[in-house]
């Protein structure tokens, strides 16, 4: 699992979006842009490749499209492994942030 880290921004955002709830490709795209304040816009090719890679590694899986929803759009859900990976990534990022902030404080102090 550790060899998955660090995650690229695309992987990270896809997993974070799916951590909240299952979604389809278009939903992931929109949610990523919204959550990043418009900074991260996933290109169609980037998203498509990333979804296939994450499926292949078992971090996400197909999710049955609920009744009444647009059945054309395939849906994805995060797996147990996917959750573990994204949690490990958050812990890693926290460490990086703390070390960095500490350095800034020490310098100013």
């Amino acid at each position: 699992m550790k060899e998955m880290l660090p995650l690229t921004e695309a992987f990270y955002y896809i997993l974070i979006v799916l951590y909240t709830e299952p979604s389809h490709g278009y939903g992931i795209m929109q949610d990523t842009e919204k959550r990043s304040g418009g900074r991260v816009k996933l290109g169609a090719g980037t998203l498509y490749t990333a979804l296939n890679t994450l499926l292949g590694k078992g971090l996400i899986e197909q999710y049955p499209v609920p009744e009444g929803a647009d059945s054309r759009r395939k849906m994805y859900a995060i797996t147990e492994n996917g959750m573990l990976v994204v949690e490990a990534e958050i812990a890693r990022l926290e460490e990086l942030l703390n070390v960095g902030r500490q350095a800034l404080i020490t310098k100013k102090g």
């Binding site: 290109g43 169609a44 090719g45």
Partner: peptide, 24 residues
Amino acid sequence: YFRREWQPGEEPRLYTDRDSLIQL
């Protein structure tokens, strides 16, 4: 081949990060 309507000042891409471009 894909296309979208051209917009001035816009440079839309299919691959938006380094890793997916390397994969391509």
